[in-house]
Design a protein around this nucleic acid. Sequence first.
DNA 1: CAGCCTCGAGTTCC
DNA 2: CTCGAGGCTG
Length: 749
Amino acid sequence: MTDEKPAIEELTHAQAAAELPALVAGIEAANTAYHTLDAPEISDADYDALKNRLRAIEARFPDLARPDSPTQKVGGAVAEGFGKITHAVPMLSLENGFTDDDIRDFDGRVRNYLGLGPEAPLTYTAEPKIDGLSLALLYEKGVLIQAATRGDGEVGENVTENARTIKDIPQRLENAPDVLEVRGEVYMSHADFEALNARQEAAGEKTFANPRNAAAGSLRQLDARITAARSLHFFAYAWGAHSEPVAETQSAAMERFRALGFTVNPLTVLCDGPEAMLAHYRAIEAQRATLGYDIDGVVYKVNDLALQRRLGYRSTTPRWAIAHKFPAQTAWTRLEKIEIQVGRTGALSPVARLTPVTVGGVVVSNATLHNEDYIAGRNSFGEEIRGGKDIREGDWVQVYRAGDVIPKVADVDLSRRPEGAARYVFPEICPECGSPAIREEGDAVRRCTGGLICPAQAIEKLRHFVSRGAFDIEGLGAKQIEAFYRDGWIREPADIFALEERYGSGLRQLKNRDGWGEKSAQNLFDAIRERRRIPLDRLIFALGIRHCGEAAAKDVAQHYGRWEAMAEALDRARPAALAQRAADAAEEAERATAQAEGRRARITEARNAAIAALDVPDDATTAWADLVATDGIGPVLALSLSDAFANPEERLAIDRLVAQLTILPPPAKAASGAIAGKTLVFTGTLEKMTRAEAKARAEALGAKVAGSVSAKTDLVIAGPGAGSKAAKAAELGIEVIDEDAWLALAQGT
DNA sequence: CAGCCTCGAGTTCC
DNA sequence: CTCGAGGCTG
């Protein structure tokens, strides 16, 4: 079909421009026909010819190449290939359990939360945990309109076209609700995996380490035709958005999925308690090798959906489910060397360099050794781990991947320990800068004291500054930061914003060195300029102050509202912060003798004396108390913040940075709903829900739940048998309601 | 004051 | 993903 077309070399620009649209349309039509109708309209050879011609034209006239051209979707380097999809209902992960007792504890927690006794009937489903990748399929009026990967749980990738090629995924559902999002696992069978690898090898292509990687790689193909050729499968096991209730129990929901045309795992059963769950676990474990696909455990879920709803969710996992994982695969290898890495906070982290070995289908050559004690064979309480065996260079060690991800050392074979292998001596000098590395009392890690003098710390801090939750500057990743640091172009965050002015012309001329050119330099400067406007919480997080992560930064930003208010308050509170530290030191010094004499009061006396000696102004005490009383901020974080702002060098660097920025205040908390922002106290017996449940419900509605009634309390919910708290509420003139009124409030909003 | 929950920090491999 | 530690609750 390309016969009459002029050869590429003879094509004029105008001719090429005229031919392109039809070419692109032809390829796209073929794509659609291939995987939506399962009936290719043209032969593979013709398809390839079309694509080759398009590629050739684009190569000769690059200005004609469109960013959405089909040639951009072949085997390309990824990422931008897929659109992002925000999950209407987040795709959470599951809590993991490993031992029988973990599962019994889970059952206990569920019962406790629901207010059920140990003998009350409670049914769970138990199903194999498929080792694949989760996928969310959105159906509207019974038609599949979107498929998204899990991603980080909030935002996934749009792989709709690829999902359409999977036979187990129905394109249409009969008698389905208007909106139904079915979730499940995409996986590849052992047989298909072996066959695929054989084909890959024969074609000289790279093979996959395990079925899960093969499934993931296949689903994330930019060319859906490749996905179609990979025979993937799908088990449905959960749901997200839905316009009407799916069912009343988990098992009925699975039955309904089956009726709708999905495949549901046949090894799903109902269990009437933890012992039955454990029995099923062992039964599945026994069949594991003969299933024909990989599983990595068994998932238990509370069957009754009304109970699931009551149990609700913690921050990242549901309370009504747990994954009982099989023991991780292990392998023995030689530990060649122990190396020390220095992190952002100066922490010295030992890493094992291993003779590469395959563990569960993945080649592992490094493993974390955590800290000094872990190498020595002890945990933080001084108890023995690995039977007290220490780890030495040259040892044969058994490694596994914790949570199937992080390689760790499980055991040491002492019989194979080389002659003369010495106990590992942990360095007390930073290997990067030579400063003393100190281990504070009661701390598990040893830290370099070099601060920003230490290049490792400086670089790690800068990396943190540009990381995802912080300034997130596109084009300025870890590698670039390190290069700029070594060049001396970026030594502190403020330098990033001076980069264009100081080195712009130089960078533009760095043709092809480190991949820089005029265009990429311009992109970087644009990205940096975009970030000159930054939300306050991101700025605080980016500063990399110890103990101040993303969540704490949000709390601090919310508390102060404006940067100036924060800086001013921290400056004012400084004397009180110093007093706090002095008091802590005095307490530490006094503790041993006070305990010997059995006089706890002496500790308080010592603290007070230390504070009194410093003569702290009242406004400092007020500012400090205000900070420490903030939700989520305790003395440790508060001191850390105070130290960062009081350190002259650090403060100057912060001020230089802030001078370059426009800081956006945190959004005012949406005070919607009757109890949002209110402080509640529950007292007496609640009959319709447990305390924990009531608390979770209140917090979900934006309220705070306190334990005792004070002037700050807004509302008291009193059940039967309420005593002093209700009386105190009456005394303070605080509104008191009963459980039914509370339920109305909780449900109404 | 002890136990729970959440957050912070560090780490590996694709 | 996991461990340790900080902060809050009962």
